[in-house]
Simulated scan of single mutants.
Amino acid sequence: MTANRLSPADDALLRRLQAINASAAFNRWAGFEVSSAAEGYAELTLRWREDFGQYAGFLHAGMIGALIDTACGYAAATLCGPVLASHFNVSCLAPAVGERFLAIGRVTRAGRKQAFTRAELFALSGDVRKCVATGEALLVPVAS
């Protein structure tokens, strides 16, 4: 999605998610950045740091899970407000090696009591974009 011009509603969603992101200590430490948002949609980016590597130098599966979970949560939050993950799963498709990473979360279905979401994680190196993981999350709205 990542558009140069956001609608006023999408710009407001983006600013709201960026504020939520800035309030989360883990996300600040990791350097997660919310780069785009629309109803039922969110993009999250992360620059590679050696701290994120596992023994073979790939992005650690724990960080992959955190990116998938957060992208799904932010996509759901655009429709449901504050949410918590009830369940999520991740499938690693290829070694996650890149200069940057892009997680794209989308809402599959949102109701009053739960939201079903899915996300893809891409490794970015120069002009190359490779899907390295996918995941799904079931989220529940919580009172703010």
Results as ranks from 00 to 15, higher is better:
Asn4Ile: 10
Ser7Tyr: 05
Ala9Trp: 00
Asp10Met: 08
Asp11Gln: 14
Leu13Lys: 05
Leu14Phe: 05
Arg16Tyr: 04
Gln18Phe: 15
Gln18Met: 13
Gln18Leu: 13
Asn21Lys: 10
Phe26Cys: 08
Gly40Lys: 13
Tyr41Cys: 04
Glu43Cys: 14
Glu43Leu: 09
Glu43Pro: 05
Thr45Arg: 14
Leu46Tyr: 06
Asp51Pro: 01
Gly53Phe: 02
Tyr55His: 12
Phe58Asp: 15
Leu59Trp: 09
Leu59Gln: 06
His60Met: 12
Ala61Leu: 07
Leu67Glu: 02
Ile68Lys: 01
Cys72Tyr: 10
Ala77Glu: 13
Thr78Ser: 06
Leu79Gly: 01
Cys80Ala: 15
Gly81Tyr: 15
Pro82Asn: 12
Ser86Gln: 15
Phe88Trp: 09
Val90Ser: 07
Leu93Ile: 07
Ala94Ser: 11
Ala96Trp: 05
Gly98Trp: 06
Glu99Arg: 15
Ala110His: 12
Ala110Lys: 12
Gly111Lys: 09
Ala115Val: 13
Ala115His: 04
Thr117Asp: 11
Arg118Asp: 03
Ala119Pro: 02
Phe122Ala: 04
Ala123Ile: 06
Leu124Ser: 05
Ser125Ala: 08
Asp127Gln: 14
Val128Pro: 01
Arg129Ile: 07
Ala133Asp: 00
Glu136Ile: 15
Ala137Pro: 03
Ala137Glu: 08
Val140Gln: 10
Ala143Pro: 02
Ala143Trp: 06
